[in-house]
Simulated assay, not measured.
Amino acid sequence: MDIDSIRQTLIAFVENAMGVAVSKMEHKRDSIGFSRMIWTAEVIDRAGKSKDYIVRHDDGNGPFSLITTKSITHEGRLIDALFKSGLAVPEIFAISDDGASLIMEKCGGIADFNEAGTAKPALTRSFAACLARLHATDSAVPTSATDGPAGLPGDLDEYLAPYRQHCRPNSIIDAGIDWLRANKPGAPSKRVLVHGDAGPGNFMFDGDRFIALIDWEMAHPGDPMEDLAAIYFRTYIRGGGGDILDWYRPYIAASGQSYDAGGIEYFRFAQFCKAAMLAELFRATASPVNEAIFAAPLKRVEASLRWAQGDTALLDEMGFPPIPVRL
């Protein structure tokens, strides 16, 4: 379906679901990541007032289209449950019958942490408190985990299965998965609901006011250190995050979790492998493909393989400092 056809389909979805007239439907796609389509719907309500909603849509041309456990329906139901539990997340208004689209609240503020300026310390504390609350969320919140005693930790198997099915074998990724399988950490003292992509760029804020955690498609039950690894990943990929301990210290204080540097190192490696598998899945679904975007994810896995052998030079060269041994 071309972009204009998708626009018309989404206009009809919003108008039918919300009982309003759509005056504008604009598309924005993340130029860095491999996420789903994001649209902004400007509507005119019954009182004649203008209001914006966010519409997320799976057009079938992205890696999450191939990861069945990461569906739009799952994401929408999860966010809805978290919103009703009182967590700072966007409100969900509707999920399409075909499961390809959802309508959610457009939160105010911005997501670019580089623009936070002097508000960064207050925002990292508020973010840490929100993440700690997420990790304390009741286990009844819907999740999509597939891991078990024979599987890989967290949701790694959810990425590995479609990668094996749809992508050409890649020796670097395969070596990374072999290392992760051979070096699995012990089970966490408590499995929590993990955001999976937490950190700078994935929460909204206005000045020093934290508004909401966003982008939940990678959420799953697992080890809380997975989210600390995600914070590391986003801090040094996106930039602007500052000292990683400025994120870790308030989280540990707010959550009461034990700090596990070795666990964060393991899940940093896992995060790099996930990103590389997502890139390969993107290669399998998108056309045309810009081959230049696939080099960095593979290089990060290669750097992790060297790190596992005691060589940190490539990680250092790429701007990834050591995980602090202690807080």
Rank of each mutant, 00 (worst) to 15 (best):
A275T: 12
G176P: 02
I244E: 08
P321L: 06
R326V: 09
H220M: 08
D97P: 01
G48V: 02
R249F: 07
W39R: 11
V325T: 11
E265C: 04
D243C: 07
F282L: 08
S126M: 01
A182C: 04
L228E: 11
A253L: 05
I231M: 12
E302N: 10
A198L: 01
Q271P: 03
D4C: 07
A279S: 14
F34Q: 12
F210Q: 06
F272N: 07
D138V: 05
V194N: 05
V14E: 07
F267D: 10
G33D: 07
I264P: 00
A212T: 03
M1G: 12
I32M: 10
P224V: 05
T143G: 14
G151S: 06
L82M: 08
R283V: 09
I237N: 04
N202D: 05
A295T: 14
S23K: 14
Y259D: 01
A111F: 12
L78C: 15
S258N: 08
V192N: 01
T73S: 12
G19H: 14
A129S: 06
I6Q: 14
D208R: 08
G319N: 07
K84L: 13
R209I: 04
G151W: 06
Y53K: 05
S85R: 15
E217F: 00
P321H: 05
R191V: 07
D58C: 02
A253K: 03
D157H: 05
G33Q: 11
R36E: 09
A296Y: 10
S35K: 03
S85Y: 13
Q165T: 00
A261T: 13
T40R: 15
A132L: 02
A122F: 12
P153G: 13
P321T: 03
P142D: 14
I237H: 06
D80V: 05
G241T: 04
P63G: 01
A212S: 11
M25Q: 06
I173G: 06
L156T: 12
F267C: 08
P90R: 01
I67V: 09
I323N: 02
I244V: 09
K24M: 11
L156H: 03
A254C: 09
L180M: 08
S144F: 15
W307I: 10
A254M: 05
D97Q: 14
E26G: 13
I32H: 09
W39V: 13
